[in-house]
Write a protein that binds this DNA or RNA. Sequence first.
DNA 1: ATTTTTTTCTATAAACCTATAGATTCTATG
DNA 2: CATAGAATCTATAGGTTTATAGAAAAAAAT
Lengths: 202, 202
Amino acid sequence: MNPDSQNTPRYHQQHQKAIEAAASVFAEKGYHGASTQDIASRMGIQQGSLYYYFTSKEAALEEVCLAALRDYVDKMEQISKQVQPLKEKLTAAISAHLASYRSNSEALKVHNEQRLYLPEEKREKLKTLGSRYRQQLEDILIEGIHSGILNKSLDCHFAALSLIGLCNYWGAMLTRDSKLALNEITAKCMHFVLNGCLGDTN
Amino acid sequence: MNPDSQNTPRYHQQHQKAIEAAASVFAEKGYHGASTQDIASRMGIQQGSLYYYFTSKEAALEEVCLAALRDYVDKMEQISKQVQPLKEKLTAAISAHLASYRSNSEALKVHNEQRLYLPEEKREKLKTLGSRYRQQLEDILIEGIHSGILNKSLDCHFAALSLIGLCNYWGAMLTRDSKLALNEITAKCMHFVLNGCLGDTN
DNA sequence: ATTTTTTTCTATAAACCTATAGATTCTATG
DNA sequence: CATAGAATCTATAGGTTTATAGAAAAAAAT
């Protein structure tokens, strides 16, 4: 393959479609449970043709995870930058996290559930992006402490991770049960994270 | 195979070993990523011999999940039955949940991450057991409300599920990072669940 | 219109995987 | 110790899977 060929508009567009197809199939069947045949079928080409866009199945998983996380970190960065009170920011963050599970071709789900099947080396970029995301969340919480809203002695690192865990859990639920309402779950997560089980309501 | 043969002590013991081997391999490589060869090797027999203990690879996954959940529901039942204050009960529940990830041959992890690869019919028993577990947790919370400790308007159903999500997340972390201390994570989860980010410390 | 380049297809090698059948070894019991 | 039954092994059928190579079709450039 001529290396220049990767610069045509068509290549770019098809490559994108390939990533989406892979994300969708991996989300449904898991990395090992999905075949390159499945991915190719979903994007309407022959199995062998897929290798024009991915050097290997593993590379496909890597690209899916990277794209998902990059997308997501970007979104978080925007939220984090905006000047608005803590509660609004946090709600936006949770809502964005949960929403990705529904809409975004489930790529984030693939990242969360399948990335460990990548070899160590291929996971490094993911780790970097992942901790940047966690850091942004942490910063929002720290800011909340400074503005006097959150508890001074809150362990922000632990809280940020827990929030991620919580959102991943409910995000996965959302993809499985279409009856669940995104807004409702967002609000409940928000309330739970802020108040816990002891705290006063409203 | 003579159906009586399944009643010998040796069969029982080897069957148990097979379930543990399967749990360990599934936990590491995922259901589809693991081969029956892997499982057989781990228990030190030939690949074909495995079928003396499992009718199929899928049946192996089913047994692993069932065993894990049964074990776990039992443990929860005991905790739930004990007469002790809410905080102690909740701590015991969280600690037990997290501990299973470390010690229990990671079968619970397999249940949480791989059970969806089972066909609907084979998942029904799991659903029943799973909701029994959730219900027990919910009951602990309800009791906490009645005894005046927890917030009256707490959504116990949502809180119970969230707690499960949180424990699954930190449980998975514990298996990946052996430096994390079980007791510390238990205490932090406990504190987070009770107080959230707003609540007072201690 | 012809040539070049990109994109897709077909065919296939090589590896692997599940499940079964029948032979073989082990174990317990009379 | 001989024998029945349990447990394991070997070999393999039948299927799927990844990845590659070379042909063919489509698109773009000259």
